[in-house]
Amino acid sequence: MKAYLNAPIKEVITKFPEVAGILTSYDIGCVPCAVGTCLLKDVVTIHNISENKKAELMYRVEKAIYPDRQIAKPVPVAEQPGSKKEVLRYSPPLKALVDEHDLIKRLLKSVPGIAKYLRKNPALDKELVLNIVDFIRKYADKLHHAKEEDILFKYFDGNSDVLKTMLADHTSGREHVKSVVKALNENDRESIILHLEGYAALLTEHIRKEDEILYPWMDRGLSVSQVGELFTKFNEVDTVTQKGVAEKYRKSIELMEEQIITE
């Protein structure tokens, strides 16, 4: 079958005329094409037909070529609308930032569980709080917010209200973290929780604004060339200065999630 998949459509039809009728019944109009050099597999992939229809078509074509062969009839699977062509909602560099938000959001979602855990245990789990502070400072702030502030935002007017608001959120976030550290030194459990909750509320809204409004707006304003530049600059940050950081903090968040669930 593989040989026929890689054969020009005209050759396949000449050898197996029945294939012509099958293709036509799926609205693939290549049959009478005078050129006919497109490969059978490409003809099937390129035409906009669903995965189920494609499987059914391939089954019928294979049966036409090898009538005596035992071929399993394809079982239709549930298809998601629009699953045919993969399209990114964001340009690749902004998609990378959206993906970084995912890990930050996992921490934010854990904050109610963290509060419960901290209140339940008689001794204050300083190590957990320090790990959270470390994650926020090194991953959310040094890696992620630095990409935004030092690279991405530089492509836009720094005096615009939109950017000023986003930068103010970053500053407020840093203040919350400072307050968490201060409260930790003072063994003030409720203050730690208060500022973690404040941070979570702030960043949840901040990330929503970025994902839904800021980044799509930025994408509309960036030229193709600027998208390429951003992509390269982000990669440099990831590979040169922050090697392994993303992986380290992914593990750290996983451990934290396990800890607050199992306790």
Binding site: C38, D42, V43, T45, N48, P92, V224, G228, F231, N235
Partner: peptide, 25 residues
């Protein structure tokens, strides 16, 4: 036209074969 999408497929293949990643529109 559907057959023209072959050029996108060629580019995607090249991208998979390449060591670097690059934004493609």
């Amino acid at each position: 036209v559907p057959c023209c999408a072959g050029l996108v497929n060629l580019t995607t293949k090249a991208l998979h074969a390449a060591k670097r990643k690059v934004p493609v529109k």
